[in-house]
Amino acid sequence: MAEPILDIRNLNKSFGALKATDNVSLDLRPGEIHALIGPNGAGKSTLIHQIAGSLRPGSGTIRFLGRDIGALGVPERTRLGLGRTFQISSLAPDYSALRNVMLAVQARQGTSFRFVKAVMRDRSLRDPALEALERVGLAERAHVSAAELSHGERRQLEIAIALALGSKAFLLDEPMAGMGPEGSKALTTFLDGLRAEAPILLVEHDMDAVFALADRISVLVYGRVIATGTVEEIRHNPDVRQAYLGEEG
């Protein structure tokens, strides 16, 4: 078995009396899509936040590329190669789609403390940014401000940013939410190919997408992983059927 890219051990996080993350262990291996499913409020986003560094875990370890990243902040983790998207899109609203991605390109290059050259004429920023937009199918909307993009387009833009960062692992928090059947289908195809570039920890409610994409699935209920396994194993797991899939029949 290949060494995992991302390895989470015994993670705990409480909000007051609420255990949002309850002794969670899971890993992400090269080339795989590991889906994280569970009902609303199960703690999926909270887990993503802790991996990305925007929330501090109560206890437990997170290793990324063999390195304990628990003490690092969000920017450092991104620079190491953790590319995340937010469940609720988080973009620079005044900036065009293109400038949002260009910001990611300059961040990746580590050139944000350059003060003279104008960014808009800078092909070393524009070209990679346009390429990332093209990959997610947003190239025609490059010059529309993020605030004016549709909900689904903003989800795509978030992914384009993660691509432009050259991420070594993707943490995607409900990328299909609000996308419509067409968009979901296109994104499913896209993510299917993306896993060869870097593994994906995919939080998603769209079960068609999850069953189509996932190499492994972990089921989170009340902050706890109640099962991890292949699509078939999860489909037939009685605990999962009762606790979660049962709701959908």
């Binding site: 925007s54 969000v74 991104t78 973009l91």
Partner: peptide, 8 residues
């Protein structure tokens, strides 16, 4: 949040 998330 976005700025930090791209690594700056």
């Amino acid at each position: 949040q976005r700025l930090a998330a791209v690594g700056i």
